[in-house]
Design a protein around this nucleic acid. Sequence first.
DNA 1: CGGGTGCCTAAGCTGATGCTCAGGTTATTT
DNA 2: AAATAACCTGAGCATCAGCTTAGGCACCCG
Lengths: 225, 225
Amino acid sequence: MEPKGTVLIADDEADIVEILSYNLQREGYDVYTAKDGLDALDKAKAFKPDLIVLDIMMPYKTGIEVCQTLRRTAGFEDTVIIMLTALSDEGTQIQGLDGGADDYVTKPVSPKVLVSRVNAFFRRMGKMDEPKIIRLGNITIDPIQFLVTLNEEQIMLAKKEFELLYLLASKPGRVFLRNEILSMVWGTDVIVGDRTIDVHIRKIRQKLGIDCITTVKGVGYKFDW
Amino acid sequence: MEPKGTVLIADDEADIVEILSYNLQREGYDVYTAKDGLDALDKAKAFKPDLIVLDIMMPYKTGIEVCQTLRRTAGFEDTVIIMLTALSDEGTQIQGLDGGADDYVTKPVSPKVLVSRVNAFFRRMGKMDEPKIIRLGNITIDPIQFLVTLNEEQIMLAKKEFELLYLLASKPGRVFLRNEILSMVWGTDVIVGDRTIDVHIRKIRQKLGIDCITTVKGVGYKFDW
DNA sequence: CGGGTGCCTAAGCTGATGCTCAGGTTATTT
DNA sequence: AAATAACCTGAGCATCAGCTTAGGCACCCG
């Protein structure tokens, strides 16, 4: 199944994270987890999730603080944020929504409820992320015409190269793990070595002539602008 | 249900886009959305919709500007444009119609009204849509006379060749996948090999004498100008 | 009945493409 | 600074996708 979207779960209670993570993964989402407020911020910036589940009570930074910080960060204007509140405390809920959260769920959390809320948001976002022309600075990536344009000049990319570039550029700044890249570009069934990715990255780099793909050693690659 | 046509909705208010999009999709239209003026231009060029719903007040470019730009763009002479005006401001309406809009609807928009207007235009276009003369540079493709003209010179194409060329030229620049071509030219029931497409492409190329069809390896073909 | 035309397939050819490997380079760790 | 891990590079090679040619079948028309 194609991944439906990327979700980040941030909570300091490991068993809650685990159970939610498990259920969301079963629904077909790409799930990342964070165990405190600072971790959540890091992971959010690294993976650019479409949706974030934030517990309010977390070490170092509360969910509300994380939420407010993110809303002031470029690239997170459209990220959906769902708050988890330990008590059905009205005041806290309001505070959460004021801070820019899109929804809140009270603990104890039923996995079913959380999953259905998440599904609802993705449904609402709908087909928004279908074949979309990506425009970043002087680069244009057009999956309909299968064309990459750099400074008005057309650049021919091979199929795999194009798919790889499109994936990275679809979430600029987000780090894609090597096995994420493998499963999204090559599919889960095909088995190719890790070096294969390097080689394709290199071809893209030399064809584009500019260095817009950054290597994150030990992790993966990201499109940087 | 066969898609009745392609519609693009451009408005910066997400909930309006959503509600209109939902209603039009239920009617059987292929719906794409854009969230500002520039986005609308991109999407219009990418998807070549039959009809565009344009809000006037949008970031970057107003609906009126988008409309005027499109009217000056090759391939959008016949695209129906419906304007959304926030106020029933007479002046704005006139300005919109002068800019080349075909109709206007005042906000707040009733989905029912909008849908019926859209339906009306598609009904009016009716069969207009199919036999339409395509003119691209010095090539003319006339599905009524079944005739291709290149630099005033008539070129005889066989039936399949003509249909194939007509399909590609109907959305110049867009890549058609091999199975798209198969299903649209040959139909879903007939099973013919992949090589058949190559051979027909080749005949078209040599009959036309110019290279207007580009091969996208591993993907398909596109008409390029 | 032949000859012409359109459509499809088979099969060899070719260049592009995708993959792997081995050695070199860079970054990180200790 | 040495050791280690991770990545880059260049070369080589097998495969693939598309191009091309040739030929067969079906249909139409004289």
